[in-house]
Amino acid sequence: MRQVVIVGHGGPEKLELRETPDPRPSRGEVRIRVVASGINFADILARQGLYPDAPRPPVVVGYEVSGTVDAVGADADPALIGKDVMAMTRFGGYSDVVCVPARQVFEKPDALTHAEAAGLPVVYLTAWQLLVVMGSLKAGESVLIHNAGGGVGLAAIDIARHIGARIYGTASSAKHPFLFERGAHELIDYRTTDWAAGIDQLTGGKGVSLIIDPLGGRHWKKSYQALRATGRLGMFGISSSSASRLPGVLRLGKTALGMPVFHPVPLMSANRSVFGVNLGHMWHEPDMIAEWMRLLLDGVTEGWVRPHVDRTFPLPAAGEAHSYLEERRNIGKVVLTA
């Protein structure tokens, strides 16, 4: 099989295509001939040495794939052989063959291409946890989606639109027409406008019910200040650290120094709450994840879950795909094809 390996920390040139024998499924596992693999910003942070959960190089990253089951291990259902599926992988997704526990495998809806299916699990599950499970977003409330043109941003627009919330977003102006078409109500170009002042004006000074923020550092303080009473801040990334020109872990240090401290007493006085989401730390809750996925797959059938693949790259062009995502040129998902 072919795999894209991070051979060291650094730029996209640290991604190398290698060949290795096909794996055999262990007890309770299935083997998938991969057609498409989703790319996430965590993969870029791992390549840069900024993602603490990632094993040290050489390592194959990737959290999600879609393809066809061609073998099963003991205790796995042999009826899965020949099925088109999507699966969550705990690293290893940048491969054209993967073995994963059967409990992390879901039948691919006929309505989705393999590329769309590979782009669904991470961003939609993350958005669901942020908006529904922990953010408790309700019809008539407002949500501010930072990086609204990214994978999680588009998924959050779909979910918030389904709930009936008012949707604000930050994104570069070139992405605004597409995001309005997807369901956003108000958009702010964060590059040319102070988004906090814009939100203050748009909400008449009240603030927003829920803000989801993947930026990290000082941005979290700014987001917290833009909440209304009973508002919630969902933090789910530190993507701002990747843009720093500082070497290695010094980037994380600069981001950490800018992070706010949320003390319980001011939180009580402000009637606000903050929470964090890291889907990569939910592997011990497979039943919970399966239930969320079932609801999202129902959403595919009903038409309100609409995975959008901005661009696909062949497996050998993984470095080019990383550059494309790192430069924030995408709207929605970037996917590797085997």
Rank of each mutant, 00 (worst) to 15 (best):
S142T: 14
L112Y: 01
K108L: 11
M134K: 05
H162R: 15
R182W: 06
I167V: 14
V132R: 04
T126A: 13
K175Y: 00
L125N: 15
I157A: 02
L154M: 09
G151S: 10
F178E: 13
P121C: 13
G150E: 12
I157L: 07
A165D: 14
L120C: 07
W128V: 13
L112N: 07
E107K: 01
V133T: 15
S172T: 07
A165Q: 12
S173W: 00
R166P: 11
E181W: 00
A160S: 11
S136G: 12
L154D: 07
M134G: 06
L154V: 15
P121H: 09
D158V: 09
P177E: 13
S142E: 07
A111L: 04
K138S: 15
A127N: 12
G140D: 10
N147Q: 10
V143E: 01
L125S: 14
F180Y: 12
E181N: 00
K108P: 12
A160T: 06
P109M: 02
I145A: 04
H114Y: 09
A174S: 04
L144F: 02
T126Y: 08
G149S: 14
A118M: 03
A117E: 14
A165L: 15
E181M: 00
S172G: 06
L112M: 04
F178S: 06
Y168D: 07
S172P: 01
S172R: 02
I159G: 04
T126P: 13
L179F: 05
I167Q: 03
Y124P: 08
H176C: 03
A155R: 09
L130M: 15
L154Y: 07
A139Y: 00
K138I: 09
L131Q: 11
I163E: 11
P121K: 09
P109L: 02
V152N: 10
H162M: 15
L137P: 00
E181H: 05
G150Y: 09
G119E: 03
G164Y: 10
Q129E: 15
A115E: 14
Y168S: 10
Q129A: 14
G164W: 13
V152Y: 03
P177S: 11
V132A: 03
E116S: 04
A171F: 00
L144M: 06
A111S: 11
I159D: 04
L112H: 03
E181I: 01
H176P: 01
L130G: 05
M134V: 06
L130I: 12
S142A: 13
G119C: 00
E181P: 03
I157V: 14
R161L: 12
S136N: 13
V143K: 01
G153D: 14
N147S: 14
V143I: 11
H176Y: 02
E116H: 02
A111W: 03
E141I: 06
W128K: 08
H146R: 07
R166M: 14
L131W: 07
S172A: 04
R182L: 06
P177Y: 01
E107A: 08
E181C: 05
